[in-house]
Simulated scan of single mutants.
Amino acid sequence: MSASADRQLSTPIWPRDRACPSRADFAPMPRPIVLLNGADRCIVPHPSGHEAVTPIVGGINLAWTHAAPIGGVALVQFGGSGEPDGLVTILSRDGLRSLIADLQAIDAQLGDR
């Protein structure tokens, strides 16, 4: 058993794009994520069936702009702790609405925690 085995977090991380319909029952991942030493990276199950190592950041800074020539809207996400690297996601208007519905489903499942 690895030193990080006792530091697992159950976190829903699944793909969201213009081809994915929203789901009211957007369930958490079937396996927990595993924190690596230092707690700034983790191993998550990738929707392809493989695993991915990814950074962990606290909070989120979000910006957006119109991106009609390449898909509709560009969401720019940066970690809330001032991390310099960000992620740009291009979504259609339907994809954006689907993402919003998924976030609302997650919020509803969390209840009053």
Results as ranks from 00 to 15, higher is better:
V34T: 05
G49Q: 05
L103H: 11
S81K: 09
V88S: 09
Q109C: 00
M29T: 15
G80F: 06
G38M: 05
G72P: 01
R16Q: 13
A63K: 09
F26E: 13
T11G: 10
L75C: 02
W14I: 10
A108I: 04
D25G: 09
D112F: 02
I106L: 10
Q77L: 10
I33L: 14
A5W: 10
V88L: 03
S98N: 12
S98F: 02
M1K: 05
G82E: 08
S2G: 06
I90K: 04
D25I: 04
W14E: 06
P84Q: 09
A27N: 07
L87S: 12
A52F: 08
Q109N: 01
V53I: 11
V44A: 07
D17F: 07
A68V: 14
M29G: 07
V53T: 13
N37L: 12
P47S: 10
P45E: 07
I60D: 00
D102G: 12
D40T: 14
F78V: 04
V53G: 08
P84C: 02
V73M: 06
I60Q: 13
I100L: 12
G86K: 00
T89L: 15
V34L: 14
A19M: 06
H66N: 15
I70G: 07
P15C: 12
G95P: 01
D112Q: 07
G59I: 02
A63S: 13
D85Y: 14
Q8E: 15
H46W: 02
H46C: 15
R113L: 08
A74Y: 10
D94L: 03
D102Q: 07
G79W: 00
R97N: 07
V44S: 04
V53M: 14
V53H: 07
M29R: 12
T54Y: 14
W14D: 08
V76T: 11
A74E: 12
A101I: 06
R7S: 11
